[in-house]
Design a protein around this nucleic acid. Structure first.
Length: 441
DNA sequence: TCTGGGGTCCTAGGACCC
DNA sequence: TCTGGGGTCCTAGGACCC
């Protein structure tokens, strides 16, 4: 039996732990640049604010409804996440951390009533971290996800579902008839793996609820949609197609991208930004002991500025050999940028993606034929982390990102005209000594 | 005026091979 | 006029997730 545990409105709940005055109020957390709402309290959802809705569209609710908006504070959320994950992981022999706020647990071999265990787990996480969670149990991961969704909705909107399903819902211990009653009341779009597009197409075909989907012809679904949907339906019927990934495979790409506070038109600004982003992905790359075989760089104008001419190119620049060296990666990224940049466009975003990743130390013997002996020599030792890069990473860890960087971009990190707004960020309560909360009598 | 930042997987089509 | 068949690998694009 699987469980899915997640934190209700994760980012908002993290903020509320340290600012209890936010409890009961409509609160949203904003994306980089204070652009979109990426987390909403239940009260904010009740105001009609949707996921990823642009901030400027709901800003008027500050005055009209007492809405509170905060800039994202990922350092805080990441730290709260690891606390919550390690607590939850004690309850089952296997755990897959699926996202910053969700974890699958495999309860195979665990004795006792799972619903009771789930309630205990929930209470423990709440007591030890202050974070409210929901727990769903089911014989497949997709059913555990759906149970979790039902647990949340039963808590938030009593009426559709029975109150005893709130917070902890166990689909595995229901009869088929009980399950079908629930499924008839659940929209097909609530199912994990069925997004907006597929929901619209399914609705067109008369499939609106989970029960509709379960009654549909499997071969037809596969033919008209995909093997992915077929798997999803099998999982909903109780046939496991997905297992627990407790050792997720190494990442295949590492990305850093941003929208800018103000459009950039000149090559110099873009070069600065792309250099910064490359420094950041290179650091992530070294952190996971990997090398990159190529750098993909993209820039783009804003599709929302309809009077602007649009230009959103991307270029993949192969490295001569796989590397984790910031200097080499910046060189390649900047050369890719120069190749695709065109003057006269209002660029509003840029990004750098490292691809063709390999574990470090795997590429010996692949020295390219054309490199000179002088060049090849330092590469032969490249299994050891480059002392320079290791020092750069250590200093940045100790003194904060941007403490030290490569050449001209050092002054630029964290500042500059295109750094973006983060006007409403809360203190990093749990990870910066200078920002730790103080209790007063 | 103002619209996020990460990722994964699948599929279709083309290049290339024998 | 008529132009194989089966396989692999790569890439771009689309769908999905949080």
């Amino acid at each position: 039996m699987f469980a899915l545990v997640d934190v209700n409105n994760m980012y908002v709940s993290c903020e509320r732990v340290f600012r209890p005055a936010l409890v009961g109020r409509p609160v949203v957390v904003l994306s980089n640049n204070d652009g979109n709402c990426i987390a909403r309290s239940n009260e904010a959802k009740d105001l009609g604010i949707t996921m990823a809705q642009p901030w400027f569209q709901v800003r008027h609710l500050e005055r009209e409804a007492g809405l509170i908006a905060l800039s994202a504070n990922f350092e805080l959320y990441g730290d709260m996440s690891s606390r919550m994950m390690s607590l939850v992981g004690r309850y089952a022999p296997r755990q897959e951390v699926y996202s910053i706020d969700e974890s699958f647990l495999d309860f195979d071999g665990v004795r006792g009533r799972l619903a009771d265990i789930g309630r205990d787990m929930r209470a423990t996480v709440l007591r030890w971290t202050g974070l409210p969670t929901s727990v769903g149990f089911g014989p497949t991961k997709t059913l555990a996800k759906l149970a979790n969704h039902i647990a949340k909705m039963a808590d938030r909107k009593p009426g559709t579902y029975a109150p005893d399903l709130a917070q902890v819902c166990h689909l595995g211990e229901m009869t088929a008839a009980q399950r079908d009653t629930l499924f008839a009341a659940t929209e097909v779009g609530s199912v994990w793996g069925i997004g907006r597009r597929m929901t619209a197409r399914l609705n067109d075909g008369g499939i609106r609820t989970v029960s509709d989907l379960l009654r549909a012809d499997l071969a037809m679904l596969r033919r008209q949609f995909s093997v992915v949907l077929e798997k999803t339906v099998l999982e909903l019927k109780g046939t496991p197609c997905l297992g627990i990934d407790d050792e997720p495979p190494a990442q295949q790409q590492i990305m850093c991208s941003r929208s800018f506070g103000a459009p950039a038109t000149d090559l110099e600004s873009l070069t600065d930004l792309v250099s910064q982003f490359t420094a950041r992905v290179a650091e992530k790359l070294r952190h996971q002991h990997a090398t990159a075989g190529a750098v993909h760089v993209f820039i783009g104008t804003s599709p929302f500025r309809q009077n602007d001419r649009q230009h959103s190119p991307g270029v993949t620049q192969p490295m001569r050999r796989p590397t984790d060296d910031t200097r080499a990666l910046i060189g390649a990224a900047v050369s890719a940028l120069r190749g695709m940049y065109r003057p006269g466009f209002n660029y509003v975003k840029a990004g750098v993606m490292l691809v063709d990743l390999q574990p470090k130390g795997q590429q010996q013997g692949e020295l390219d034929l054309f490199s000179s002996a002088n060049e090849a020599e330092p590469i032969a030792r490249s299994r050891d982390p480059s002392p320079l890069m290791a020092t750069v990473d250590a200093l940045n860890r100790k003194f904060g990102r941007g403490a030290i960087g490569i050449g001209s971009l050092a002054h630029q990190v964290g500042g500059g005209a295109h750094a973006g707004k983060r006007e409403r960020r809360s203190p990093r309560y749990t990870t910066r000594l200078g920002e730790i909360p103080v209790a007063t009598a």
